[in-house]
Nucleic acid binder design. Structure first.
Lengths: 190, 190, 190, 190
DNA sequence: GATGAATGAGTGTTCATTCAT
DNA sequence: CATGAATGAACACTCATTCAT
């Protein structure tokens, strides 16, 4: 018996991401994905139970790798602001490197598929962010508002700035990234 | 000859918006919309040249009415911060009143259809925002960064906060709205 | 009460012929014809009971005008061969002048609509041909075979030769027309 | 994996031919063909890329088998007239055996689809005809006119005579076939 | 007479999925 | 494991025709 070919699974996921980038979510069909990944449509059903599973799994994969990238050099001994700065720049670097992954997750987040993701499964990857924010609040450095409100000013801006559909003028130069971070920091700091 | 029934066109647009809210953009088909609007699928093609036209037109309609709502009590004699505050609260009020319109435009913005909107056509509706930001910068009240970067901290946050998919804890109470505005203001003010 | 507008009826028929030439029989729809004729689809139903009627009537119109053209200078006092020669050249002249009509009738003849034409209605227009052939046989100048077999060699060749789909090399020069007539004459003469 | 069922492809082609005979080219839809062939409409797209491909392929298939039938006993050592006689009778035999194929190709030839056939692909099947005509001309037995003009008198008459829409009186008796051949021969011989 | 609105039935085609190999 | 064949259901869209004006 042959083993499951992880290359094949990965090829399918990569094909999904690229196709979504090229033709959009709605026009993305199993057969097109199969053609792009150079496998048979039936093969996709070896690795995923159905289209929904493929699309959600692809998202989860993207989010996981993003979580890993964000927190790769997490150092709880650093000051709050420096820790946040690292998250900020790591996010930018990661998005710049994998813009297609970013675009996919943007489309996914605004689709009804979102509700199918078990968020606990992903949350652990972003624990360092939560810890940092939590201690920031405890140390009276950061405003004492719910985490998701803070996220609106500290993390979503990166996604918006990196998205050329929304921000046509923003260039990911070091200067601009630092400037935007200062704005985010001004928003959340006490 | 029968005369054109504007109610019918509106019914089609409303059906589109509601369906997108219920089943999402991708699964939204002409025949489902027709059923929802209680017209024949063929009738949709009397009012719109094709599906794309229907979807884009619906978005434009939503955006226009949003623009009108935002700027309805625009008063250029007010201080910058007060003007922004009005935009902020108007947006919240409008989104709370028409959450479905809001959800539709969120999905639309993250779809490949976005590129089909002639943005100039809509821009005029949001001119007061641009003027306000511009004079804020001139008066050295607001940071001198590109408008879309400012928007990331001043306008998109409202959309995110109002979106219960992203912010599960945020309640649109007056207190919270004011608090969030303060954060936005801290981000952009000099 | 307005009178029936013959211009309008004619415009519809002309539009039908031209459209068939451009996009073919199968793709020819009432609404396209209406657009081409600059009338409303509903107007077509003022002049024709349905699509079938329109298509058959158009064919009949074409055939009638062809019959008239063929026999316009019919002179029963001329010798058989000269009479046939006039039919022959008249046909060529007419087809060259109205190639679109010719193409339409070719498509029509090979469709199941043909069976709907009351051939007697048209036959009278071609009586001179039949008389000529009949006296040719009686005078032992033409072979004594059924008229439609004679037609296969004396009349259809013109249609085929004039049809550039079948005959790519045939040029309607006087020489070639005379040469082809000689061949036809050789086939049927005793 | 299931293996491709050639019977299925043939069934689709046969269904196409028969339907065209029954209801005509224009009203022939994919779903009707599918129903006739007892397959799903989708299955047709396994074997043909689209409707056009199906229709053209069907024609090419018919033409090929006709070419083979015409030239099956081709013998270049026979006299010109005898060779032509064989083509003539072979054509008649073939058309009588497969009248539906004949009717299909007549309809096809007068449709806009004709232009899609790569004629070179088919020409080779009819090479013996061209050789025969060519040597007939060289030997000064046949008139020195373009091949397609000769075809108008030597080959198309068969199609017309066999077509009961055009020739209602012609019976495919040996006598009549021989008589018609004599007429054709008179037309082209020197 | 003339028309644009309106539609049920149909178009060609693609879909997600299953099946047999 | 891997696949091309096969399909019912759905897709966006157009059809010929009728209706109210």
């Amino acid at each position: 018996m042959r083993h499951r070919d992880d290359n094949k699974k990965e090829a399918i996921i990569e094909a999904t991401i690229h196709l979504v980038n090229e033709i959009g979510f709605a026009s993305c069909s199993i057969s097109k994905i199969a053609k792009r990944a150079r496998v048979s449509p039936a093969t996709i059903y070896v690795y995923f139970t159905n289209k929904e599973d493929l699309i959600v799994s692809t998202y989860v994969e993207i989010k996981k790798s993003m979580g890993v990238a964000l927190t790769k050099d997490y150092d709880p001994s650093l000051p709050i602001r420096d820790r946040l700065w690292r998250f900020w720049t790591n996010t930018f670097t990661h998005i710049s490197r994998y813009p297609q992954h970013f675009f996919y997750s943007e489309q996914f987040s605004n689709s009804p598929f979102t509700s199918l993701v078990k968020s606990e499964e992903l949350d652990t990857y972003f624990d360092p962010l939560h810890s940092t924010v939590r201690s920031g609040i405890e140390q009276k450095i950061i405003k004492d508002v719910p985490h998701d409100v803070l996220a609106v000013f500290m993390f979503y801006p990166i996604l918006l700035l990196a998205n050329h559909k929304f921000c046509t003028t923003f260039e990911s130069s070091d200067d601009q990234i630092r400037l935007a971070f200062d704005m985010a920091w001004d928003a959340i700091r006490l």
